[in-house]
Nucleic acid binder design. Structure first.
Lengths: 145, 145
DNA sequence: GAACCACTTAGAGTGGACTTCAGGTCAAGG
DNA sequence: CCTTGACCTGAAGTCCACTCTAAGTGGTTC
């Protein structure tokens, strides 16, 4: 597989693939006689792994470290495991932060729903004026204070 | 509250607080006569909100847009709600990506556990040599092929 | 055999989000 | 009065992870 095909298959630009190789994330990519990259199945599964890890926010640096260990041989298995565990913990933290943000967004959205409904109600003919308590939520907090 | 106190309270550098104000994320921060920022409670809750949103990966740009709408008045409530919903969807996507990465990390870690145990077993005196199938997982894929 | 296209390289440029710097002001303490 | 330290400003610098550019090569097609 040439670079264009891999690029399309994994939706990663050819530039990025070359970059990954240059910085040591992707190693042992065979070449044709004329120097053109010919990705094999091993390369592909590495790429897929990298894509997944990058999407999870794992840094290029950590991944390079992992690849370094890998190339050093079997005896680095415990170190690699430790590295993955460290990264896993970071991903968990990130998920917790995102979840907190998501909860907050949901809360605010629900709040807007109420507010907008109230505003519409008070716009209908013959409606009494809007309640003082139903003002828009402030620029940041969610409560009335 | 002066900038140093706010910085400590929310664990955000004073530089970042000034930066947020400069780009329009944080508005209406009162000043003392000599020009020193005196953050009030409204500012604080905005800061807390910003911190949460940033931790969830919401871009500075989107947050500025939100603040812009906010300053335009009550009639932008539906637009603000739409903006938050859009951001919420992005956060959900991000969580899904992280979760996929987390699952994969857990899988790989479990794999290493097995591998390391096997390696230790075969190192004990009198053990038969390691199985051919128990080699280290490859640099990316999780299976044996 | 010229055009064309995908590929190659080294190196420079980009965008987002800060972060640091240089130089300046102000209030309090010795 | 002078120093100290926290604050101020605008502008430049930094970091990460790409992304693009320029200049060139190799193989196929009309």
């Amino acid at each position: 597989m040439k670079i264009a095909e891999v690029s399309k298959r994994y939706d990663i630009s050819a530039d990025t693939l070359r970059y990954y190789e240059r910085v040591g994330l992707l190693r042992h990519v065979p070449r044709t006689e004329s120097g053109i990259r010919e990705y094999n199945e091993t390369n592909c599964s590495t790429i897929e792994f990298l894509k997944c890890m990058r999407a999870a926010g794992v840094s290029i640096e950590a991944l390079i470290e992992y690849m370094d260990l890998f190339d050093e041989g079997e005896e680095t298995a415990p170190a690699r495991k430790a590295l993955l565990e460290e990264q896993r913990d970071l991903v968990r933290e990130r998920i917790a932060d995102l979840q907190a943000g998501l909860d907050r967004l949901n809360y605010k959205i629900a709040n807007y729903e109420t507010i907008i409904l109230e505003a519409e109600k008070s716009m209908r003919p013959g409606a009494e004026p809007a309640q003082p308590g139903s003002r828009l939520c402030d620029s940041c907090g969610e409560g009335q204070a």
